[in-house]
């Protein structure tokens, strides 16, 4: 199902007619906030639609619809603030209680429904620039919602279709080979954290490159350190506007100092469009 149609299918019918005409803008996100009408993100800005205001009960119903009235099945993911269903990723906000095993919610105030898109060849030119002289460890950078995961999928496909064995760690359900074309030589491991996934791939699938999305937590950095030096390449994504942003964080400074990543693919919004720029990374 088309991601936008899948997102509308989660909503009570009264909101759908106002949102349907916006399909032509290829929205990237549907934002639901209690007390406000639904809003759509496209062209790097948010656009409210003319529809009734949402109530908390509407948000609860969206979550029930998304999980088949089985929120417990997504509880593990929701404790990290989001969960995925097929081509949608739902982020949840509300009255959270942070516990040892994660975050729970007693009230919901907003939901963000990210609509995953497949953009074949969006990184074709960048891939030539990145890997013209052979593969180098690559970090894809952009602020949140910048298109890193979409770019990662395309790079995986380009590498895998070119004959490179790519081991993909799909921790968040956004690199599902059943939903996206990840190329003929990719192997996906899902339902596991990055460190365990990396070790499993190294032991069993002899990957030439390992791909992972969102290197942010300390355990993700540990996974990268584990892979680095095993003779396997790495392509990953991180939240940052550019290399200077990365250097402000201790965990990334260490990776840059060690020269783990040699090049960055930086995604920027320029006059409402995405631009892809390749840069050398230095410690």
């Amino acid at each position: 199902m088309d991601p936008f149609a899948a997102a509308l299918a989660l909503l009570p019918q009264k909101y759908v007619p106002a949102l349907e005409p916006y399909a032509r803008y290829h929205p990237e996100e549907l934002r639901l906030r209690v007390g406000q009408a639904p809003a759509l993100s496209y062209g790097f800005s948010e656009h409210p639609v003319s529809a009734p205001k949402l109530e908390e009960e509407d948000l609860v119903r969206v979550l029930q619809k998304a999980t088949g009235a089985s929120l417990y099945s997504a509880a593990e993911s929701m404790r990290k603030g989001y969960f995925s269903t097929g081509t949608l990723r739902l982020g949840v906000c509300g009255r959270a209680s942070v516990q040892e095993h994660g975050t729970g919610y007693s009230r919901y105030s907003s939901i963000s429904v990210r609509l995953a898109r497949e953009l074949p060849d969006v990184c074709k030119e960048a891939a030539c620039e990145l890997y013209g002289d052979g593969f180098v460890n690559t970090l894809i950078l952009s602020p949140p919602g910048g298109g890193k995961t979409t770019a990662l999928r395309d790079l995986i496909r380009i590498l895998a279709d070119g004959g490179t064995r790519v081991g993909v760690i799909d921790e968040r359900g956004e690199l599902d080979e059943k939903l996206y074309d990840l190329g003929r030589c990719s192997d996906v491991i899902s339902g596991t954290d990055k460190l365990s996934g990396a070790l499993l791939l190294l032991r069993s699938m002899t990957p030439q490159v390992i791909a992972a999305d969102e290197i942010s937590a300390p355990q993700d950095i540990a996974a990268i350190r584990e892979i680095y030096g095993c003779g396997t390449g790495i392509v990953a994504t991180a939240h940052a506007c550019g290399p200077e942003d990365l250097k402000r964080r201790e965990s990334y400074r260490e990776l840059l100092r060690c020269g783990v990543f040699r090049k960055a693919l930086i995604i920027r919004a320029v006059r409402g469009k995405r631009r892809y720029e390749v840069k050398e990374l230095t410690g």
């Binding site: 119903r61 029930q64 088949g68 009235a69």
Partner: peptide, 10 residues
């Protein structure tokens, strides 16, 4: 009846 989930609460 679960087909009506979303329009009606569980």
């Amino acid at each position: 009846e679960m087909r009506q989930l979303g329009e009606r609460s569980f």
